[in-house]
Amino acid sequence: MTNPVTAANWPYPRWVAHRGAGKLAPENTLASFMLGASHGYRMFECDVKLSADGIPFLLHDATLERTSNGKGVAGELSWEALAKLDAGGWHSPAFAAEGLASFEHIARFCLDKGYFLNIEIKPTPGIESRTGTVVANEAARLWQGTATPPLLTSFQPLSLEAARAAQPQLPRGLLLDELPASWLETAAGLGCVAIVCNHKLWNADTVAQAKKAGFRLLSYTVNDEANVQRLLALGTDGIITDAVNVFKPDL
């Protein structure tokens, strides 16, 4: 990686497709990334956790029922077992038999096409540190020698701390669904370059505080025009959206 990503050296586009293509395709699958790309998106967000045998793969929930035909805790199954599941039929017949995506498969798709990636480290509860370590090590391996590394984000400080210890050169962002009193101190203590908030938390005051502290500001999940315009007017840096068919990214 040539130049480290910092708040001053920020290479990512403003628009980020949530879980590949939002709700238009089965989330966190290769099909969703391909559909998001067909709408002109060049940066994607996805959730990555570990199989029982330590293989990073894409899934949001701790359990399999909502987005596959599997049952139980995903992290308790081997990748061999997970790879046999249907992760598309729940969404619509057009995506029946779409499989769960390994992190490496998605990474190579993005690298081949020159796309940017926001990796949310989404650990199975209890293995926050291990997940941060493995995901960071795999990201560093896959993006070695490339100009722009992925952005690693998480709601879990333990995962971000482990990612920093393993691969300190990879940029990190703290995900927040509320703002505790120590939100800026926590992000700074983890060496983050960005804060990624529920978009409702950004206002003139919080934006000013975060900018003064030297962070880039991203928002999730923004699906309506009024909030897009509000966040643009506030001067935030990234908009994560499901509505990839509504908002045209700035290319």
Rank of each mutant, 00 (worst) to 15 (best):
M1C: 13
N3P: 00
P4C: 10
A8D: 14
A8K: 14
N9D: 13
W10R: 10
P11V: 06
P11I: 05
P11R: 11
Y12F: 12
P13R: 10
W15L: 07
A17G: 06
H18G: 07
G20E: 00
A21I: 00
G22D: 02
P26F: 02
T29C: 04
T29K: 09
L30N: 08
M34T: 11
A37T: 06
S38K: 11
S38E: 05
S38C: 09
H39Y: 15
R42F: 03
E45L: 08
D47P: 05
K49D: 01
S51C: 06
A52D: 09
D53I: 04
G54P: 07
G54W: 00
G54C: 07
F57D: 07
L58V: 08
T63W: 00
L64E: 05
E65T: 13
S68K: 05
S68Q: 02
G70K: 11
K71D: 08
G75T: 04
E76Y: 04
E76T: 15
E76P: 01
L77V: 03
S78E: 05
W79V: 09
W79D: 05
E80F: 07
L85N: 10
L85Y: 01
W90I: 07
H91C: 10
H91R: 14
P93M: 09
P93F: 02
A94W: 03
F95I: 13
F95Y: 15
A96M: 11
S102Q: 12
S102E: 07
S102D: 09
F103N: 08
F103P: 02
F103T: 10
R108L: 13
C110M: 10
L111C: 14
G114D: 05
Y115H: 15
Y115S: 13
N118F: 01
N118S: 12
T124V: 11
R130C: 03
R130H: 08
R130N: 09
T133I: 04
T133Y: 06
V135H: 11
A136W: 00
N137E: 15
E138V: 11
E138F: 03
A139T: 10
A147R: 15
L151S: 12
S154D: 03
L158T: 12
L158K: 15
L160A: 14
P168W: 01
Q169H: 13
L170I: 04
P171K: 06
P171L: 04
P171N: 13
P171F: 02
G173L: 07
L176V: 03
L179P: 12
P180D: 08
A181R: 07
W183G: 07
L184N: 11
L184Q: 15
A188W: 01
A194R: 08
I195G: 13
I195V: 15
V196Q: 15
N198W: 04
H199D: 03
H199I: 00
A204C: 02
T206P: 09
K211G: 09
K212H: 12
G214D: 08
L217C: 14
A226N: 07
N227K: 08
R230K: 13
R230L: 02
L232W: 02
L232E: 12
L232I: 04
L234C: 09
I240A: 10
D242W: 02
V244C: 09
V244Q: 03
V244A: 06
N245L: 00
V246D: 04
P249A: 00
L251N: 14
